[in-house]
Write a protein that binds this DNA or RNA. Structure first.
Lengths: 203, 203
DNA sequence: TCTTCATGACTAATAATATTAGTTTTCATT
DNA sequence: AATGAAAACTAATATTATTAGTCATGAAGA
């Protein structure tokens, strides 16, 4: 039974994603993807423009999955802070469950996914953030929140938090502290303070 | 004048670093590094074990530079919060000045630099953080601070903060908010709250 | 001065991959 | 049964990293 292997683009992307998660992104090769599908490497080119395009597709699937998880984690009944923390924890849980593909999606210098996907992903978090901080500040607060969550996860996944201690607790505490801080700033509606500090600095 | 080009390891690493910063990390090739030094690729192997080792060396230089900048930015006379913000701004300024090498140093999945270097880099920030948050929490607070700063910078460098607005301000505000939040948590010395929230969540 | 030898560069060769070009198999449709 | 498109294949090319073995240089000792 020679030829008819009958693969399609989605299967290829799914297989590549699995291989990345299992063997790491750096060792991914078109040959391996093809072999896993019972096919030779050049056959993939009928469905995928290049290895770069394949990685881009993998990254888009990863983001879509993360997006779906965040959607699942939203619970409109809870108060905004609890909702936000729930989203942060769901986000981190996803990254822990898919470390290789998460890192790949957010660090591939070129084959970054479509920006619209990122915007979409952030919607649940943004909605909630607008409730916590003042409207004028909500974009800044959102950016900092993403930075904190993404940064924490990246440091963890890159094994740069190796001095023991309870990382779950540190994450929850840091996110809580960040929220508490914006609550203060938001209610005082003083954006003068950070501005001033910025100008006071050396360098 | 044939052979004696006389290169050495430091020169090679410096040249590689320059090429990364100018042309990007993905297009770095041993051939280019060698050519820039008036030499052929195999000659590099007398000084460097492999391309991976070269990248590791580049990453260590990058971290050492960042470390030095942070040291310069510390001003013991200022109050802890101003000091911290100064460090955060210096950190971000470095990342903006060396985007390619910064990203490379923190995202190369394998050729990550020696962990001791990371610990060293963090010392100035850690010293100050211990003054701001309670001692018991200082490690957690430090981790969150690094996450926020590193995460913000990574999102910027990966062009994932594209919706306009004043990024300088957002950064300063977010760092300030984070600090303010820990001041609250620290003074209330209640670590029960985030703990509890963590357990209250859906999922 | 001549020889020798280590150093440091070189050329040539190998292996792994991505990618392209051209060929063959299969199978549905005439 | 013949044909033609679809989908796989094999063969070939280009780029790199890496290794093996060769040659030039200049200092140290005869």
């Amino acid at each position: 039974m020679p030829y008819p292997s009958q693969i399609d683009r989605d299967t290829i992307v799914a297989q590549a994603l699995t291989l990345v998660e299992v063997q790491g992104a750096t060792t991914l090769t078109l040959g391996k993807v093809a072999a896993a599908l019972g096919v030779k490497a050049p056959s993939l080119y009928r469905y995928v423009d290049s290895k770069a395009a394949l990685i881009r597709a993998v990254n888009e699937v990863t983001l879509a999955q993360l997006f779906a998880e965040l959607d699942t984690a939203t619970d409109a009944s809870a108060d905004p802070e609890a909702q936000f923390l729930a989203l942060a924890l769901a986000y981190r849980r996803f990254a822990h469950a898919h470390p290789q593909t998460y890192v790949l999606a957010f660090t591939t210098p070129d084959e970054r996914p479509d920006e619209n996907l990122l915007v979409q992903m952030v919607l649940p978090i943004q909605r909630i953030m607008a409730q916590i901080s003042g409207d004028g500040q909500s974009l800044a607060a959102l950016r900092g929140a993403l930075a904190l969550i993404h940064g924490f996860v990246m440091l963890e996944l890159n094994r740069q938090l190796q001095r023991g201690g309870d990382l779950d607790l540190a994450f929850a505490q840091s996110v809580s502290a960040y929220l508490a801080g914006w609550r203060v700033v938001g209610s005082a509606e003083s954006e003068a303070q950070p501005m001033q500090m910025q100008l006071n600095l050396p360098l």
